[in-house]
Structures are given as C-alpha cells and as structure tokens.
Amino acid sequence: MAEVKEFAGKIKPDWCPGCGDYGVLNALQRALADLDIAPHNVLVVSGIGCSSNLPGFINAYGFHGLHGRSLPVAAGARLANHGLTVLVTGGDGDGYGIGVGHFVHTCRRNINMTYIVMDNQIYGLTTGQASPTTEKDIRTKSTPEGTIEIPLNPIALALTCGATYVARGFSGENLQLANLLKGAIEHKGFSLVDVFSPCVTYNKHNTYPWFRERVYKLEDERHDPSDFRLAMEKAFEWGARIPIGLFYKVERPTYEDEDPTLRSGIPLVKQPAGRANLAEIMQDFM
C-alpha cells in the first residue's frame, strides 16, 4: 500500500477554510494510496470551478480543461490510453449545468473512469449564483426572490442514463467517501460519485449541520445496490432523511471491451501507429 503523502500535490489548495472540497481531496488521496496506484499512471481531468482546481493539488497527471468539458477530454484520453486510471473532478455547475449533455452520454458509454462531482448546490467561483442542484426557493445572487426551477437529481439522472456505479458521499463522512471512491475506481465501467461538499461562503442553506442532521448511510440499512428499482426509489429520497452510500452497481461490458481497436487490451498509445497497410487500403480508390 502506498503512502497518502505520495499523492500530495506541489500546490497548497487555495479553497476557503472549511470548504468541503478539502475532505474530497483527502478521501481521494487515501483511496489512491490504498489501491496502490502509481501517481504517474493517474490522470485527473477537470473543468472550471473551485472544485475543478483539484488536479493542481494532487500528485498525478492533470488536465485542467474548459468549463463543462472535462468528461469528453477524459473519454478521449482514456480511449487513447486505457492503461491509465482516469478520474474526473468538478462541480455541480460544471457537470450538471453547462456540461450535462456530456454527462448524459458519458453514462451511456460506460467508459471505465470515475467522475467525482463536488456538489455544493451553488456557483462558488463566480461568487454565488444558483446552480442546477440549488433547491427550490433558495435566494442567491442571481435569484434574489428565490429559485423557481426545481433541482436536477444527479443520482436518478445517472441511473437512467446507464451509469454502472452510482454513489453519493458527504465530505463530512471521510472514511465512507474514501471507500466509495475506492469502489468507484476499482469498478470496471463509468462511476459517478456525487459528493455533498458544502460551500461555506455562498451556500448558507445546505451547510455541514444541515447535512449532518439528515444524511444516513445506505449500507447501515442494508440497501441492495444490485436492485435498480430500489436505487431509483432511494434517489428520490430527500428532506428529513437523505441517503448517502452506494445506490447502484452493475457489471456491463465497457466501451473499451467492445471497441474494435481496443479489444486486444493493448492501449491505443502503445499500439504501433502508422502500421496501416496503405497499399491495401488504396485499393478502395481503384
């Protein structure tokens, strides 16, 4: 087992003191260390937002891309080298707002990678506007009279779109979160780990105490994560009790298993390039 400190990045995180993202970073470093993955074999892809700064704070390869476009970058990288452990990190605005189209299709694709969404139900980096997961009637800078739209349900969306590992963590439950992340990384297929990661600066509603009063662990209630209907039912549980843990897990062939160029198991980048039989292909033009 590797040491957690092997995954410490060169840069000290500049998140606000008390930000939920610290807990997510710690849990992720612990999960990678427990799984004994070498840092140079990990690629962390992110978009834009507070949580998307994470690749700078962890010792691993990183790609800090455009707002909302982390999933297709990660998909391209993973298809080009499926020897890498590919992780995607970002926030609710990045993944469920501007990037939700990619989220839907990435679930469908079942490329083996792990998507960690630090869901704080607000736009933090742009100083506090309503996000796709902001609850109804919440006042924010962009909704001074309260939000009119109902929030998006990431767990239910991932389930209906075909994600094969769907979990929710809470940055205040670090051990469980590390285990959920370990499970997600080990899972062969596309995993979503949506994490309640409170924004202590701009979200005065969904705070640590708010979550502590409400969350309960699915494993404590012997939830069966192989039961899709039950997972859907749990996905809609919100209010006095909010479940965290593994909602659903299923084995399905991955994209890498079925693509004709990857079936051999050899990553594309390790396959010899330009080995095409050009003379044979040129017959098409004759």
């Binding site: 690629l43 892809v45 790609f63 891309g65 455009l66 476009r69 999933l71 297709p72 970058v73 990660a74 998909a75 391209g76 990288a77 993973r78 298809l79 080009a80 080298n81 890498l84 189209g101 990619h102 299709h105 594309l268 980048v269």
Partner: peptide, 13 residues
C-alpha cells in the same frame, strides 16, 4: 463540443 474535447484528450494522452 464533445468531439473537439475528445480529440484534445486523445492527443493529450
């Protein structure tokens, strides 16, 4: 948008 970002990801790898 996915197309260009996948292409960038693959090239990056």
């Amino acid at each position: 948008i996915a197309v260009i970002n996948m292409t960038v990801g693959a090239a990056h790898a």
